[in-house]
Design a protein around this nucleic acid. Structure first.
Length: 879
RNA sequence: GCGUCUUUAGCUCAGUUGGUAGAGCACUACCUUGACGUGGUAGGGGUCAGAGGUUCGAGUCCUCUAAGACGCACCA
């Protein structure tokens, strides 16, 4: 045995992981007959560094995976990284920008090459950080979304969806980020409140310059693209204008006044300018009324040819110029402040511009319906129970077609080829061999790449090998569990479900577990700009990986947020140290343990008690693990180890170790409980448990991670002895309490009166003397022969306690103390007896409840009487 | 605007099918106890956001109000 004085995790964590990995403990078997357990790691972005969110994911998933492995499942945890289209491209573009270059200076090929370099560089970092956290991932199966096989799968999916008619190319109004110069899906758009202005502009009626309509807009520059003015058909104010036309200034275009009930008569002026090319609602109205869509803003956010004299200006400058010109023409009525929301790119926060462009879409309705049914039919269960289902249904029920094309260079290039001549397209993985129908043999590939989430949605079946029919796929699909943040329920979870059902004809996973978001101690999102980031690597260097894991597990409750502070982490490091210190005690004292000891045939009640508690705790831990409530798992482990094993059992064991008769059995039990506890805690704190397990003479496997996870043995749970020991603990606490109040530090005498517990108390007199720091402990059947007036008293259920203390008893003080003790007892007594006299209660409460109340009544009555007697006696002494 | 959630000790949070409240941290007092001061022992601290209702009985179920968080939609 060679354990350092303190818990020093830095000394052994790295080595232990190396050992596990080199021995292949993380590897699952494709053809095992054991029940499978599989899960994919939500792939981190290749360029990302490990943050607390990752640490939480790794902790939760590794804990679940390790327990399953110990339970004998054929376990695989699939690792991988995601190419993360926009995010990664942005990182590299920023690097280039420092050199004053853009991606266009390099050209597509060179640029993509450069990203690969960056990817290789970062990949090692994130993989090492993941290993540092102890994650028992099956590294042999690691994948990257852009690797060859994955790309093959992506193309296959695209081809199949196209064959089924679910993929189409269309010219639509989409959200465009001019910074990233790409289209975005609805999900990548973030709304944020902004202060804007509402401009009231006059459009003059054609043929009658004395008449005009006033339209209100937040974006005057778009008037250049107006192709109608709409009013509500029921609006009397404008009835005289029905069928007339108005003239758009500058472009001098005549546009009709159209009627549409969409227009809110009560808002603004009741007149709505329609710009189909630059507003989603206007686009729809335009479609309905077959209006022309005139684009006036280009992909760089500049005014285009259709913007006459404003051509080439940025949107902002154009707006100012337009306003000046309007004023000159007396066409600007007024300007008001206005609170509005604007759409921003979720990646770079650039204000988005709705633009009409050619994009690729997937029809979602059919797939969404299947995805809804799968959850409704409980083919997938969501944890924790609650509001996730509703959110999921709502989104899928209102789903829109998914824009999957991105005008980026980093990603899966869409497997579509256009004829050089006639521009007809062919869907094909490689350059088509057959010439086009027009006779031209030459094609060029689509420039656009696919949305990152398109490939991400394939993880559950591509990770085990699809589209090949591998053994792994057979064994590990559907995955057992998907564990992820609720923020990507739409981006990822629902899409995996839709694609899984579409391509595997089965759900991708049986269960979904959502975890919370990590925030700082004030509840704010951690971000570099706020400077409130707690770096998991610094934390683990300082406190150890197990400490961080245990902290995160304790906080992984049902709440949506986890407020993390270094303070709380430090608290849990004390627990790890406690485990370390207690282990030292066990090992130092366990020399010469009884090697033939049988846990089922123990002699000593205290040993039976701790074994019973161990099994009770195993039961709770397993039940909580089954429903993924890791906070309860870690809380149970913490309480058991510290406040039962250390505070009571180890203290009890000291006199038992000193007694030759009980020493052998006690030493064995110490080692046994220690070993079983380590196994129970191993999934959450893998390193410290392995380190200490290796030193335990009772270790029965070469590694704790392949030992069996403890299950509760009902036969070893003894509720009676657990209750008895509760009383013993109360007895000790009561004596200590009195001694504290009276400042009695020395050993003293105590007499207890108890019919029920006299034998047990006699049996345990050794440990009791030690724990309560007593000189002697007498057990009597009644109070005859006790000088009651000279004693300080305490009462607990079924036990009366007397401390002879004639020389320093303070009757006044003692009376006050007992009165204070009496208060809650009397309140409880009144309440319970009132309850039991209440006819309504007797008639309607269940029989067990009534029995329980009767038991309480007895207990409170006795205690009440004892205390009142004692007080009376003190009063007589005072006189 | 629609929907979901939260509100319990100074702080962070538990509280199972309704039986008048728990933990950790923090706080106070005492303890150099041969595993551990990253410790031990004993304490103090809550009209469970507010109002009303159902019930014999409500932190727990229902309604409303207030504050906060999130999602969706609208935004001329």
């Amino acid at each position: 045995m060679d354990l350092s004085a303190k818990y020093t995790p830095q000394e052994f964590e790295k080595e232990i992981y190396k050992e596990w990995e080199s021995k292949g403990y993380f590897h699952g078997d494709d053809k095992s007959s054991k029940p499978p357990f599989s899960i994919v790691l939500p792939p981190p972005n290749v360029t990302g560094a490990l943050h607390m969110g990752h640490a939480l994911v790794l902790t939760i998933q590794d804990s679940i995976v390790r327990r399953k492995r110990m339970q004998g499942y054929n376990t695989v945890w699939f690792p991988g990284t995601d190419h993360a289209g926009i995010a990664t491209q942005m990182v590299v573009e920023r690097e280039l920008m420092k050199e004053g270059k853009s991606r266009h200076d390099l050209g597509r090929e060179k640029f993509v090459e450069k990203i690969w370099e960056v990817k290789e560089r970062h990949h090692g970092i994130i993989a090492n950080q993941t290993k540092k956290m102890g994650a028992s991932l099956d590294w042999e199966r690691e994948r990257f979304t852009l690797d060859e096989k994955f790309s093959k799968a992506v193309n296959t999916v695209f081809l199949k969806l196209h064959e089924k008619g679910l993929i189409y190319r269309g010219e639509r109004l989409i959200s465009w980020c001019s910074r990233c110069s790409t289209a975005l899906s609805d999900l990548e758009v973030e709304q944020s409140p902004a202060k804007g202005k509402l401009y009231y502009m006059k459009y003059f009626v054609k043929g009658d310059p004395s008449q005009y309509v006033t339209v209100a807009t937040t974006r005057p520059e778009t008037l250049l693209g107006d192709t109608a003015v709409a009013v509500n058909p029921n609006d009397d104010r404008f009835k005289h204008l029905h069928g007339k036309k108005v003239i758009i200034p500058f472009v001098e275009r005549e546009v009709p006044i159209i009627l549409d009930e969409y227009v809110d008569m009560t808002f603004g002026t009741g007149c709505l300018k329609i710009t189909p090319a630059h507003d989603f609602n206007d686009y729809e109205i335009g479609q309905k009324h077959k209006l022309e869509a005139i684009t006036v803003i280009d992909k760089n956010g500049k005014m285009n040819n259709n913007a006459v004299q404003f051509k080439g200006l940025g949107v902002k400058e154009a707006r100012e110029k337009v306003l000046v010109e309007l004023e000159n023409r007396n066409a600007l009525e007024k300007i008001e402040d206005y609170a509005m929301t604007i759409s921003k790119c979720s990646r770079c926060e650039t204000v988005l511009e709705p633009l009409i462009s050619h994009q690729w879409f997937i029809k979602m309705e059919g797939m969404a319906k299947r995805a809804i049914d799968a959850v409704k039919e409980e083919k997938i269960k969501f944890y924790p129970k609650g509001w996730w289902e509703e959110t999921y249904y709502r989104w899928l029920e209102n789903i829109r077609d998914w824009c999957i094309s991105r005008q980026l260079w980093w990603g899966h290039r869409i497997p579509v080829w256009y004829c050089n001549d006639c521009k007809a397209y062919v869907v094909s993985e490689h350059h088509p061999v057959k010439p086009c129908n027009c006779g031209c043999p030459d094609y060029y590939q689509e420039n656009d790449v696919l949305d990152t989430w398109f490939s991400a949605a394939l993880w559950p079946f591509v990770a085990p090998g699809w589209p090949e029919k591998t053994d792994a796929l057979k064994t590990f699909y559907p995955n057992s569990l998907m564990e992820t943040g609720f923020d990507i329920i739409f981006f990822w979870v629902s899409r995996m479900i839709m694609f899984g059902l579409e391509f595997m004809d089965d759900v991708p996973f049986r269960e979904v577990l959502y975890h919370a978001m990590i925030r700082d101690e004030k509840g704010q999102k951690m971000s570099k700009t706020r400077g409130n980031v707690i770096d998991p690597l610094l934390v683990t260097d300082k406190y150890g990986v197990d400490t961080l894991r245990f902290t995160l597990a304790s906080m992984a409750g049902r709440a949506r947020d986890i407020k993390l502070s270094e303070n709380s982490i430090e608290g849990y490091s004390h627990f790890m140290n406690k485990v370390w210190q207690a282990t030292k005690f066990v090992f130092i004292n366990a020399q010469g343990y009884d090697t033939k000891c049988d846990i089922k045939k123990l002699k000593y009640p205290l040993n039976k008690w701790i074994i019973s508690r161990l099994n009770s705790v195993s039961d709770v831990v397993n039940k909580k693990f089954d429903v993924y409530e890791l906070n309860d798992v870690s809380e149970s482990l913490y309480k058991f180890f510290w406040h039962e094993f250390c505070d009571w059992y180890i203290e009890f064991s000291k006199p038992m170790l000193a007694d030759e008769a009980s020493a052998g059995e006690t030493k064995y039990v110490l080692l046994y409980v220690h070993r079983e506890f380590l196994k129970l805690m191993h999934p959450i704190a893998p390193f410290i448990t392995e380190k200490l397990f290796q030193e335990n003479p009772l270790k029965d496997k070469e590694t704790i991670m392949l030992d069996t996870y403890p299950e509760a043995n009902e036969k070893l749970i003894d509720k009676e002895i657990e209750n008895d020991l509760n009383t013993i603990q109360e007895l000790v606490s009561s004596i200590r309490h009195i001694k504290t109040i009276y400042g009695i530090n020395a050993k003293n005498d105590v007499i207890v009166v108890s019919a029920k517990y006299s034998k047990l108390i006699n049996d345990l007199s050794g440990p009791l003397l030690k724990l309560a720091t007593l000189k002697s402990l007498k057990v009597e059947k009644d109070t005859k022969g006790i000088d009651l007036a000279g004693c300080i008293r305490a009462v607990i259920p079924d036990v009366e306690i007397y401390l002879p203390a004639k020389e320093f008893i303070d009757f006044e003080k003692e009376k006050e103390r007992l009165k204070k003790k009496l208060e809650p007892v009397a309140v409880n007594l009144n309440m319970t007896s009132a309850k039991l006299k209440n006819e309504g209660f007797l008639a309607k409460a269940g029989p067990e409840v009534i029995e329980k109340e009767k038991g309480k009544l007895d207990e409170f009555t006795k205690m009440d009487k004892e205390l009142r007697d004692a007080i009376k006696m003190l009063e007589s002494c005072i006189k």
